[in-house]
């Protein structure tokens, strides 16, 4: 590490010096003039052999480069800082106030957070969001493993089309996905029609209005969306595994199943960690599908944080509580992502 770093430094010091040696072309703009380090001229030849002597010059050139770098980063920083980071901090700030979004506000300290953790409805929303991890993460990764293993097992015609199709749900607007499934689950919708046609009329129900089934029905939409992504991720991972590992396993007389558990799964750890991370974020941040299909009902069975935040701001006018819930939600996501990342590293 250290060595590489050193090498890097002297290389760029050389480059800086050389530019300086040859006069800069007239077209060079202000940025370039700023970059050039005049004091590096005299020392450039000796530099590489005696690092301690060129230090001050180098530092100055580094500072110039740093200034240039900051200039390049600035536009991105402004957009991200002003419209993402600042609102996020502002949201945390509001979460300490009791505010209806219209009138004056009062400082209430942690009271809104107490509400988030104790009010049944708010708890319920967080738990519902966490429960979606089963549908957005566990099922898709499981299904994805199987599908990817089957695809990887052998060359097939039509594999390209298969990928295109499997990946399709991932690129659709989630609102449209919600509308599609709202129709499929409808009382007279295709799913009930098929059930009736198959002589299973007893099983038909208003899927999205049923206290026992609505949550699963909405959750399954998440499975439908994310399975394709997980499959492709895992498939890409499988193709990277060194074939000689399978070779060795076969010599050890490991069957297909044992190969899967002893070679494939361990080799896929990085991809699994990524699939889990990405899908957990979409599970906890889900809004579009629930908003369109059930709006959080029946009762409160499918109320997730996103939907509740919307209601808290616009119906109940409890903006402080909404911000507290949003803050808890983002902290929760950050914590889970960190834990998943750590788990993925530790085991490997």
């Amino acid at each position: 590490m250290v060595r590489a770093d050193l090498r890097n430094r002297s290389a760029s010091a050389n480059a800086g010096a050389s530019i300086n040696g040859a006069p800069a072309p007239a077209s060079a703009g202000a940025v370039e003039a700023d970059r050039v380090a005049p004091s590096a001229v005299g020392t450039s030849k000796v530099d590489t052999s005696k690092p301690e002597r060129h230090r001050p010059a180098l530092r100055r050139s580094h500072r110039r480069q740093a200034r240039t770098a900051l200039l390049y980063i600035l536009p991105a920083f402004v957009f991200y800082g002003l419209f993402v980071a600042a609102p996020w901090l502002h949201s945390i700030w509001i979460s300490f106030y009791d505010w209806d979004g219209i009138g004056p506000s009062t400082w209430v300290g942690l009271e809104n957070y107490v509400a988030v953790l104790t009010e049944p409805l708010l708890q319920r929303a967080l738990l519902n969001g966490l429960g979606f991890i089963v549908f957005y993460t566990v099922l898709p990764v499981g299904l994805g493993l199987v599908i990817a293993a089957v695809i990887a097992a052998r060359q097939r015609r039509g594999a390209g089309i298969l990928r295109t199709i499997l990946f399709l749900p991932q690129i659709l607007p989630l609102v449209a996905v919600g509308v599609i499934w709202r129709y499929l689950y409808g009382t007279d919708g295709p799913i009930n029609q098929v059930l009736t046609g198959a002589g299973l009329g007893d099983l038909t129900r208003a899927w999205l209005g049923d206290f026992e089934w609505a949550y699963f029905a909405v959750g399954f939409v998440g499975t439908w969306v994310t399975t394709g992504l997980c499959t492709m991720l895992l498939l890409a991972g499988m193709q990277k595994i060194d074939p000689s590992l399978y070779e060795a396993a076969r010599i050890d007389r490991a069957g297909a199943v044992r190969q899967f558990f002893h070679v494939t799964l361990p080799g896929l750890r990085p991809e699994i960690v990524i699939a889990v991370t990405v899908t957990i974020i979409s599970a906890l941040a889900s809004f579009d599908v629930v908003y369109v299909t059930t709006g959080g009902g029946p009762g409160r069975t499918t109320t997730v944080p996103g939907v509740l935040i919307y209601q808290l701001v616009f119906t109940s006018n409890r903006v402080g509580v909404a911000c507290a819930l949003a803050t808890v939600l983002s902290a929760l996501i950050l914590a889970i992502v960190a834990v998943v990342g750590r788990l993925g590293k530790e085991r490997s």
Partner: peptide
Amino acid sequence: GLTLPYEAIVIP
């Protein structure tokens, strides 16, 4: 920012 849900910034 990759982990930040839109819910966390939309209210402010």
